[in-house]
């Protein structure tokens, strides 16, 4: 398993033995994406009407995180060719030669099976099936198919990132609910303006790699319009947890305020289309979009933890 250089090329050459460290394998799991998955899945898990045993909840969360990491490794295996071209990804373990593609494939498949099996054992098989579907959706539907085929790649592919809170909720309860669908919808609608704001600035990078992001295919102006339209849908969705009664008025006020800032930044991106300011405003929206999602889920999480501690 440790021979680098001959297995992928198919050409027999001098055996080069792997010097990959555990850190390189951890990098394959996309730790930053994993931390977001843990955060949103924990919110879904704690939204369940009846709290799960802390150890069972921890194990379920870990299985979901490992499943997310496994799909990250499989994504890096499949996208190694374009990762090598793009500035943002050229230092990943496969393009940098620290881990071979086949090692990443084996690592990802093994962890996927382990994560799904573990979630089935510790929580329930409905959650395990949903986790398996999430991994399949991210790797096969998004990475292998949509990403290189259509500018709607991250719209449909965004579902993969939106599933973790649903998996968390199902792990705790064994069934779906309106609240888990709302969390799904928030992340699903948040994904396009988040990624397109970055794609506006990195259009050349995506173009070199041949990825049909919206700014490359439909142009920056159409992208700015779609960012604005998705933001208009996102803001009321962000308030929905309060309107549907599973979040407090504090969340309601916070989500309206955060939504107003999000919309303001999206309008600015729509209006300022040229010069350094245009890129600067797009990056400001990209940065704020991360904060927006984090604060919405942090507020929901905090409210739920307080409720559980007070035994309400």
């Amino acid at each position: 398993m440790s021979f680098v250089g001959e297995s992928d090329s198919g050409v027999a050459g001098p055996a080069k033995i792997s010097v990959a460290s555990p850190g390189d394998y951890i990098a394959l799991l996309k730790p930053r994406v994993m931390s977001l998955v843990i955060f949103t899945a924990l919110t879904g898990l704690l939204l369940a009407p009846h709290p799960v045993h802390p150890i069972v909840g921890f194990a379920a969360l870990l299985a979901i995180a490992v499943g997310a990491g496994a799909s990250g490794a499989l994504n890096m295996w499949y996208d190694a060719d374009i990762d090598a071209i793009m500035r943002r990804t050229c230092k990943r373990p496969i393009p940098s030669g620290k881990v071979t593609g086949s090692e990443a494939l084996g690592f990802g498949l093994t962890l996927s099976a382990f994560a799904v099996f573990t979630l089935g054992i510790v929580a329930n098989w409905a959650a395990a099936a949903l986790l398996a579907f999430t991994i399949f959706f991210y790797v096969v539907i998004y990475s292998m198919w949509l990403k290189r085929a259509t500018p709607q790649n991250i719209v449909i592919g965004g579902a993969a990132g939106a599933f973790p809170p649903v998996v968390g909720y199902v792990a705790a309860t064994g069934h779906l609910s309106v609240s888990s669908f709302v969390l799904f919808a928030i992340i699903f609608v948040w994904t396009p303006p988040h990624f397109w704001a970055l794609a506006l600035v990195r259009a050349a990078d995506y173009g070199r790699a041949g990825i049909p992001m919206l700014p490359n295919v439909k142009g920056p102006n159409r992208t700015r319009l779609e960012i604005l339209l998705y933001s208009l849908v996102l803001v009321p969705l962000g308030v929905a947890p309060y309107l549907l009664g599973f979040a407090s008025p504090v969340y309601g006020v916070a989500s309206v305020a955060l939504g107003a800032v999000f919309l303001g930044l999206a309008v600015r991106v729509f209006l300022v289309r040229t010069g350094d300011k245009a890129d600067q405003y797009a990056m400001a929206l990209f940065g704020f979009s991360i904060l927006y999602l984090f604060l919405l889920f942090a507020e929901l999480l905090t409210e739920r933890v307080i409720t559980l501690f007070l035994g309400m």
Binding site: S2, V19, A20, Y25
Partner: peptide, 10 residues
């Protein structure tokens, strides 16, 4: 030595 070290770490 580098290969031995990384194998040990793994």
């Amino acid at each position: 030595p580098e290969q031995l070290k990384s194998r040990r770490q793994r």
